[in-house]
Design a binder for these strands. Sequence first.
DNA 1: ATGCCGACAGGATGTCGA
Length: 260
Amino acid sequence: MKIATWNVNSVKARLETVTAWLKDAAPDVVCLQEIKTVDDGFPRGAFEDLGYNVEVHGQKTYNGVAILSKRPLEDVTRGLPGGETDEQARYIEAVVTGDKGVIRVASIYAPNGNPVASEKFPYKLAWMERLRARAAEILSYEEPAALMGDYNVIPTDEDCFDPAVWAGDALFQPQSQAALRTIENLGYQDAFRACDAKPGAYTFWDYQAGAWQKNHGIRIDFVLLSPQALDRLKTCTIDKRVRGWDKPSDHVPVVAEIDI
DNA sequence: ATGCCGACAGGATGTCGA
């Protein structure tokens, strides 16, 4: 089963790019982030026409996440547990059944957190703590799980072109890196790192200042796998071709092949 | 030090992203 995550930066503005990629890559499951639309505005027909089931947790203008799957999506959870007063749509989770068993998948859009001196940074850290709690709960199920998305954390110096540029940024703060590491330390593995230890692989290049042309990127989109999913991991790749296409998102898809 | 680019809502330009 081919599973993928992609921050599309508006599903409406990106519809042609996204459908072109789906036809080219033919993933079985895709977690989308930053769809920037309410549920009713989601172009579900365009994806259903390509054979996908669609589950959406949308929001006007900002955020919003979705899951597309060629297999039925079951046990759908909208919103990250523990945030009854949180209005921001950043999490949706569902269970997919493959030929050899089930896999639980989550589409995650973690808060950016900038500027660090604002209330946005503690919101980011509190949200990551809620994600840790949910990740721990999922681990207790002892089943294959893939927590996929835009974590808005640069894990190490090797995950950005120039660490000095990011020194004051929320994505690169020690607290942000620790929050991600704490989730991994529960027992999740970064699928890309499990397959490819080379530094200098990125998933995001800013639209500004020719970042793509200069390869000034960062790696902030991850597929985190439970032990039961890691056991079945075959490959994990970053599809950077897509950043060079017309009307690209500033993020590219991360794709993992799981034997499920 | 800040903007660079792009999407959105709204109908100009400010907010947000990373």
